[in-house]
Design a protein around this nucleic acid. Sequence first.
DNA 1: ATACAAGTTAAAGTTAACTTTAAGTCAATA
DNA 2: TATTGACTTAAAGTTAACTTTAACTTGTAT
Lengths: 150, 150
Amino acid sequence: MVYTVGEMAKVLDVNTSTLRYYDSEGLLPYVERSSGGMRMFSEKDYEALMVINCLKKSGLTIKEIKQFIEMTEKGDETIEERLKLFENRRKAVQKQIDELQKTKKLLDYKCWYYQTAKKAGSEQYVKNISPEKIPEEIIEAKNTLKPKSV
Amino acid sequence: MVYTVGEMAKVLDVNTSTLRYYDSEGLLPYVERSSGGMRMFSEKDYEALMVINCLKKSGLTIKEIKQFIEMTEKGDETIEERLKLFENRRKAVQKQIDELQKTKKLLDYKCWYYQTAKKAGSEQYVKNISPEKIPEEIIEAKNTLKPKSV
DNA sequence: ATACAAGTTAAAGTTAACTTTAAGTCAATA
DNA sequence: TATTGACTTAAAGTTAACTTTAACTTGTAT
């Protein structure tokens, strides 16, 4: 199965110009061309694009992804380097997840805050609630809103 | 406790110009000024900045955060609107987390892939492994690398 | 009183990751 | 064979979120 740039763009739900941009940046060295010069994407290229997307989501820039692609072109001598890269990306993604969990806790607090304000009809009411009456899961996030030190 | 822009920047670990930029974009309408025109951040402003940061992490742009600030300025009549905003942000963050979990699964696969390649000394070895010999948690992620349809 | 680090504004500059445009070529269909 | 939609490249444009610069002012420490 081969794909034109338009077909591959549709499958991945990206703009065709994004794929051409990636190619121009050296991210797609394995994409073949027809006799007329048109890109012919294979299933391997789809896989490569999925990995590119994964690395992008993990926080790598296009330039850094290009460096990874260059490693793959060097072959077996870069296996260990690539392993380290992916292990680091995994750590980075876990960190992102942890960060988002914290973000979500604060949003939980804010939802509770506005739900309570809505019921009472005023924000002032929530501001005056004594800490003992605030649910335990909620007060933790509220406490993160206080500065620690200068 | 009051903070200068430099002190607040230190506490939040951002550039002073970031705080001035936020102010210029209307995100900090409650920051007071000294007689000489210097910004004096309070603990309330710290809290506001934590919430701004939270909304940013949830995926809002500076302009969208400004709209939220404008809601807070309108007072109690926007409580419900703000509640909806935070509920939506919470959903958005959960979606981000789910996405990152998927990203992490693919990284798990890639780590397994290169660990196995490293042990064998070649990538070709891993490519030839028959699917039954691939761990179950790993093969799922591998399967996401195959295109579904055109 | 004076030095000077840290503050002020307005405006210009930066960066990443695309996206658009222009001018032209390829390939499938009537 | 002619049309036409999708492709090609190179280069310019876009956008968000800062960051830097320049010219000047404030406030604190000696």
